[in-house]
Simulated scan of single mutants.
Amino acid sequence: MTKLFGRAAVAALALGFATEAMATEWNVSVWGKRRAFTEHVEKLAELVSEKTGGEFTMNVSYGGLSKNRENLDGISIGAFEMAQFCAGYHRDKNPTITVLELPFLGVNTLEEEVAVSHAVYAHPAAQADLARWNAKLLMTSPMPQYNIVGTGEPRDTLAKMDGMRVRATGGIGNAFKAVGAVPTSVTATEAYQAMESGVVDTVAFAQHAHLSFRTIDQAEWWTANLNPGTVNCPVVVNVDAYEALSDDHRAALDSSVDEAIAHYLENYGALLKKWDGVLEEKGVQKVMIDEAELAKFREIAADPIREQWIADMSAQGLPAQELYDLVMDTLKKQRM
């Protein structure tokens, strides 16, 4: 009897250890607050937990683990297993994916943004680029074209943008610089204060960020059709953590990406439908920029910045022209 009990106890103890060993808990570093920009991360966590019966869980932290500009560094040292960041925050750390932040690429929809981003993420050069930080590109955070909010007289011509102090990062910042504006790359969480204190006159964001970071609350006008480009913000995972997953847990993660993105697109689409109502409610003027001004903007900013990017990246030994062509070819395929 004693022997039987002893064996049963050992078996139960072993089962307990096995169950514990099967459990996986990841920490995920994002910033701000839960919003349209993070809905795919939240959905991913939900799906992975469902598919694994609660064995694989993700704790999504909004600024508690790292500053947004330091998320890639945190991934590199294994401080957390998953993180979101934006390429324009540190272009030198992720040069390949900055092709997606070039101004006036002509991406028209969130679905097109997903397609071009994931095409670039799958390119060996981009994967090698991020592998330097022990990071694996998992999925994008697709955002619509940026537009600016401001106070006072609307900046609706290139002449009026000359000298404008604008919160803008990456290729969008370069585009504004090309027409005489002065871009500054304060983080999203600092944008409201920068606008309030007069450090910047205007702020370039996608719609969800104007809401989440309250720049719309200070705005008197919003450019509805400037559309100079967008930023690219991947979600990455630590390579060691990814490779340490069991086959079942890795399959649960990989198979949930498309579902999470689909949820994000549906959620963001609902926000875009409400946007005109938000402007009306807050008394923000919707400014339409003349097509002739937009054409001048594209002529000044698009071709020269793209050619300079290709030259600079090629000089670093990166297949810059190939990456740019990949974006253009992917857009064509999306529209067939």
Rank of each mutant, 00 (worst) to 15 (best):
M1D: 02
D73K: 10
A204C: 12
T2I: 13
P228H: 10
Y89W: 13
D276S: 10
A21W: 13
E81I: 02
N94E: 07
E293F: 01
T2F: 04
C233R: 07
G64S: 00
I75F: 02
R167H: 12
M143E: 14
E266D: 13
V41T: 14
A14P: 00
R155G: 03
S76L: 04
N232E: 15
Y121V: 00
A244L: 03
G269Q: 02
R69W: 01
A315H: 05
G74Q: 12
D312K: 06
T96G: 05
L102N: 07
A36D: 14
V99L: 00
T187Q: 09
V107S: 05
N267H: 00
V30G: 09
Q321P: 02
S61L: 03
T169D: 13
H40Q: 15
E101K: 03
N59R: 13
V257K: 05
E20Q: 12
A320V: 06
T24G: 04
V60F: 03
Q145I: 01
E50W: 01
A292H: 01
A292Q: 10
E70Q: 13
G64M: 08
E153K: 10
T109F: 03
T184I: 09
A9L: 15
L4G: 01
K3S: 08
M82I: 14
K33E: 15
N27E: 11
P144G: 10
L331H: 11
K67G: 15
A87M: 00
A219F: 06
N68R: 09
F17I: 12
I97V: 11
A87Q: 05
H90P: 06
R7S: 05
Y192V: 03
A9C: 02
H210I: 02
H249D: 13
Q193A: 10
H40L: 06
L65I: 14
L110F: 01
D254E: 15
R306E: 14
G78M: 04
W275D: 04
G317Q: 06
T157N: 04
L65G: 09
F80D: 07
V179R: 10
N174R: 14
N94W: 04
N267I: 08
L272C: 06
L47K: 07
N232I: 01
A251R: 06
Q334A: 12
G170E: 06
I300R: 00
I148S: 11
F104D: 13
E243N: 11
R298D: 11
K282W: 03
V116L: 04
G74D: 02
A23M: 12
G6R: 09
P319M: 07
S76V: 03
L102R: 12
V166C: 02
V327Y: 09
A36V: 15
Y89R: 04
G317Y: 00
G317N: 08
K177V: 01
A311M: 07
M195R: 05
F213H: 10
R250Y: 00
E190K: 09
S212V: 08
G170K: 03
D276K: 08
I77F: 02
V235T: 14
L279C: 07
L100A: 07
S212M: 10
G283N: 02
E196C: 06
E196Q: 14
V284S: 00
S255Q: 08
N227F: 12
F213L: 06
T187L: 15
Y89L: 13
V203F: 08
A224T: 14
D162E: 15
W221L: 01
L272E: 15
R91A: 13
L100I: 10
D92F: 02
D325N: 11
A194K: 08
A262Q: 12
A12Q: 07
A209Q: 13
G163I: 05
